[in-house]
């Protein structure tokens, strides 16, 4: 009996990820509104209206870079990260990197194994000051592969930023699963190049 490896259609996955930011904005907006409107009612209406299918107006919302949205996305990534590292470790228990769990090796694990699992490629660069700060650089971030705003490059970069919080959350999640607390600042250095600044001695 042959075992079928479960597979995910790359396009479906891309489209799902593309929807994460608009979804985070919508839920934030709806929650705000329903709290404002019906504070007395204890059950807020959080169903999302089907108001703007097909257009991208939602990304012009002032909530795009709000704390709430950032937090939602980062948290999403965080839970994925925690689970994902478990799956990867289980799948590849012979991994050399995992035999010596020092910080640099965990970073290498993220750069190689986690990134390959998520984006089909490795991180392009890993820098460290050997005092707990690491910079992970991906020269061509896969999620941004098809991102291109009708306005201009600046607008593209502005609207891409929230998507980085998902990956940033994933990294934090993976580190957490190894017992490392961290503070991560993602940055779009030169589109589509991205970097993650990781401070572990927090």
């Amino acid at each position: 009996m042959t075992e079928i490896t479960p597979q995910v259609n790359a396009t479906c996955l891309d489209l799902l990820i593309n929807e994460m930011v608009p979804l985070a904005i919508r839920t934030t907006r709806e929650l705000k509104q329903s709290y404002e409107q019906a504070i007395e009612s204890l059950v807020p209406q959080i169903s999302i209206k089907d108001e703007d299918t097909g257009d991208v107006e939602i990304l012009n919302s002032e909530l795009l870079h709000s704390e709430d949205v950032t937090h939602k996305l980062e948290n999403c990534g965080y839970s994925i990260g925690i689970r994902l590292s478990e799956v990867l470790i289980y799948k590849d228990s012979q991994n050399e990197i995992l035999k010596n769990l020092e910080l640099l090796n965990i970073m290498k694990f993220i750069c190689r194994d986690v990134w390959r699992e998520l984006y089909g490629k490795q991180m392009d660069n890993l820098r460290t000051n050997h005092r707990g700060t690491f910079v992970l650089i991906d020269n061509a971030f896969k999620t941004f592969q098809r991102f291109d705003s009708p306005v201009d490059l600046q607008d593209t970069i502005y609207k891409c930023k929230p998507y980085l919080w998902i990956s940033s959350g994933i990294i934090r999640g993976v580190l957490k699963s190894f017992g490392v607390d961290s503070l991560i600042t993602p940055e779009i250095t030169k589109f589509p190049m991205v970097s993650f600044n990781i401070q572990t001695n927090v």
């Binding site: 489209l15 929807e19 097909g54 257009d55 991208v56 991102f147 291109d148 306005v151 593209t156 891409c160």
Partner: peptide
């Protein structure tokens, strides 16, 4: 597949994506 571009264009709006 580009989440920054609309797929349903309002009357008068065009594809301007470089």
């Amino acid at each position: 597949k580009n989440p920054l571009s609309p797929v349903d264009f309002k009357p008068g709006s065009k594809i301007t994506n470089q």
